[in-house]
């Protein structure tokens, strides 16, 4: 277990390192931050001073080594635009993104699993067919288009829900979130659903496929031959088996929810990390971009680790790395 975790962390460190090189040099290929930052009207001397202050006068390789040295002490550089530490900027916006991603994950679970289960148990019922057809739409319609349509219908035409921003926040058990106010929730519904749409479809299909496969297995037939109640067969024998892949995939996809909230946050003007990233890319604010991507990679790494551990907890046949079965 420990050896497994250490090996995993080493691998992740390499991923982070490679990623930082690519992004660092990549941003420079896209454009020179100096052009974006400096008022062209300013005189030459001012420009030089500004450039030196940002460390952009040095060769790019040297800049990278400097960044790396600081990174090891937890300093990912200051935003060119805001002049604040990039890490701090991102962490400030992380709760908004996290609550959006969690709400989306929650929707994927509470809608996806029951719908998928039903569709798997009664594959020929009209309701199941409608569910499956809708899930194909969920997969194929682009997120931004669905987001715009939702705003059109529910905010503009019907006026039921606010279209932009994050609502009022409240603190509950030491956690501050807009999940705890009605106003906050009403702001959350559309963006969360928009973000969740793909995942709901994914969970429906995974659960349905798992169910259809499991009902044919001998162990389900044997459970029936034991005279168990239908509810026990479905919610213990069947669900416990199909939840293993569903939870694994959801755990991995949660990273995706965070990373790809970029689109949803932009459409709904949600003040999260994704929106910060888009703004930073537009302004070539390299420290923020690099810091954002490093954090995303770290989130993926941690999630992978959690999923691996959960997997071994859920499935008795799986034992982590060095422990023997």
């Amino acid at each position: 277990m420990t050896a497994f975790a250490i090996r995993r962390l080493m691998q992740s460190a390499i991923v982070v390192l490679v990623m930082s090189v690519i992004v660092f040099f990549g941003v420079n290929i896209v454009g020179d931050p100096v052009d974006m930052l400096i008022n062209p009207e300013a005189d030459q001397e001012d420009i030089e001073i500004a450039i030196r202050a940002l460390g952009l006068d040095k060769p790019i390789g040297e800049q990278y080594l400097f960044f790396l040295k600081n990174a090891f002490s937890g300093n990912l550089g200051k935003s060119f635009i805001f002049g604040e530490p990039a890490l701090q900027l991102i962490l400030q916006r992380m709760p908004a993104t996290m609550e959006l991603a969690l709400a989306a994950l929650f929707m994927a679970i509470v809608l996806g699993i029951p719908l998928g289960l039903y569709a798997g148990l009664r594959p020929h019922s009209p309701f199941s067919r409608i569910t499956m057809a809708t899930s194909i739409l969920g997969f194929s319609l682009p997120t931004f288009w669905v987001g715009l349509m939702m705003i059109m219908v529910f905010a503009v035409m019907l006026g039921w829900l606010p279209s932009t921003g994050r609502g009022d926040e409240a603190t509950f058990l030491g956690v501050t979130s807009s999940l705890f106010t009605m106003n906050g929730l009403s702001h959350m519904v559309m963006p969360a659903l928009n973000l969740a749409l793909l995942k709901i479809s994914l969970v429906i299909r995974l659960t349905r496929a798992g169910t259809r496969e499991a009902v044919l297995q001998d162990y389900i037939k044997f459970a029936r031959a034991k005279g168990l109640r239908q509810s026990r067969i479905i919610f213990v024998h069947l669900l416990k088996n199909i939840l293993i892949p569903v939870i694994t995939v959801l755990g991995l996809e949660f990273g995706g929810l965070i990373a790809f909230s970029v689109v949803t946050e932009t459409i709904f003007a949600w003040p999260g990390m994704g929106k910060l990233l888009i703004d930073s890319i537009q302004q070539l604010d390299r420290p923020v971009i690099v810091a954002y991507l490093i954090i995303i990679v770290l989130i993926f790494v941690v999630l992978n680790l959690i999923v691996d551990i959960m997997y071994s907890v859920l499935d008795p046949r799986v034992r982590l790395g060095d422990r023997k079965a």
Binding site: K221, N241, D315
Partner: peptide, 17 residues
């Protein structure tokens, strides 16, 4: 009326004790 199946590696639920 109880039943015993052919393949014992498939009849027991793999994730239940």
């Amino acid at each position: 009326i109880a039943m015993i199946f052919q393949d014992p590696t498939m009849t027991l639920n793999p994730v239940l004790r």
